[in-house]
Nucleic acid binder design. Structure first.
Lengths: 213, 213
DNA sequence: TTAAAACTAAGGGTAAACCCTGAGTTTTAA
DNA sequence: TTAAAACTCAGGGTTTACCCTTAGTTTTAA
């Protein structure tokens, strides 16, 4: 019998998965948690074999929970689920101890298969995940600068956020207490990094890639 | 018996909900769709009372599907579900014909309650949703000119879309075969209507209120 | 400790955006 | 048909964005 703990801040999701897994004779859902605190309390009191961990890209808490579980309870397996197929996110999750990663567009059959595989101590990566990681390796070799690999400095991020708020160079300079010329430099570097030619396109690109909200 | 169609591009989600709803005697899930095409095909062949529609903010397809369903099959009720509590998104969804809107952090009990309510022809809004909408109404009252009442002319829409694509005045003038001065006039009118002072804020406002994608 | 990266800032431009006023032409709807 | 709305365009100005180069200072990481 594999004892499973479900973790997701969307209650309806854990309830749905729970309902789905209850049909499996050798699986039992022993708890559902909505946040990190609940997870810690639950693990202290109930023995668990496998945690199904849903992660939202928005906050980093999913990564932290994963790290906490695998650090504190090395025997517990973690299956990460997310709707995000972002390569860096997947790899970070796996580096933090997840034994498998499923996208939410996979079916219940694959979920159960993944649970079985992981519970036996093996890793489980769906073909989708494998492809994403392989593709990103290829990208890194060839493309040199994929937008996802872009790194922004502290100042660039600050300037970008203020631009996204519709602030002008003068206003940004005032807010950050630096010269307008310096702001222009940062803005110019941002345009260059995003490979766009004006702030409108910059904003669109930044929104698209999730660098600002 | 309420015949329900589940729509979500995350298969695991529809399967979970389906499993959850199967326990209800007077509900039956007659299908699960992952995209708009499947929805259209399914509705052509199978009678449906209620569609549970999950929307991802990323693409606008959720809104379009909702509109399609309520336009084509006026008797079918639509319950929208999303993880996004963005006010403009909720209102747009309701304007496109949704009979209810649930956040994904609600539980299965409320889901079933919502289904029952909507199936009887009533609207269902959770207290969370009600609060969000009420708050935005208060905001709008104070602001005097609600953005939703704004009307844009044909040309203004065209110019707005091109601005949103990052085109400059010169480029827009060329594309629309009009003078740069005319484009400036339209842009100026747009800034005025949106009550913003530069194109970055214009783009943000237009995105926020759904005037461009 | 030393080199790289980041932050800072300036000169000196051009291009684009922004603002205001005024005004003729065309389209739309009462 | 007639007024309102929309579309068109211009003059003439200010402000902001954009581009390129150069360069000193500070922070970070090997």
């Amino acid at each position: 019998m594999i004892r499973i703990l479900l973790v997701d801040d969307h209650k309806i999701f854990t309830e749905g998965i729970s309902s789905l897994l209850q049909k499996e004779p050798d699986l039992t859902v022993i708890g559902q948690c909505q946040n990190a605190h609940q997870v810690k309390e639950t693990l202290k009191t109930i023995p668990v074999d496998l945690v199904i961990l849903d992660i939202n890209l928005g906050n980093e808490s999913g990564l932290e929970i994963c790290k906490y579980i695998t650090d504190t309870y090395p025997t517990i397996r973690v299956l990460a689920m997310s709707m995000y197929d972002d390569e860096s996110f997947i790899t970070r999750m796996l580096k933090n101890g997840a034994d498998g990663y499923l996208l939410k567009n996979t079916g219940g059959t694959e979920l159960i298969k993944a649970i079985g595989t992981i519970a036996q101590g093996e890793k489980y990566y769906s073909s989708e995940i494998t492809n994403i990681i392989m593709q990103s390796l290829n990208r890194q070799k060839k493309q040199e600068k994929s937008i996802y690999q872009l790194r922004f400095t502290r100042r660039e991020k600050e300037v970008l956020e203020l631009i996204a708020k519709g602030k002008t160079t003068k206003e940004i300079a005032s807010i950050l207490s630096i010269s307008e010329k310096t702001v222009e430099t940062h803005r110019s570097n941002l345009l260059s990094k995003f490979d766009v030619k004006n702030v409108v396109s910059l904003l669109k690109a930044a929104l698209e890639y999730g660098y600002v909200k």
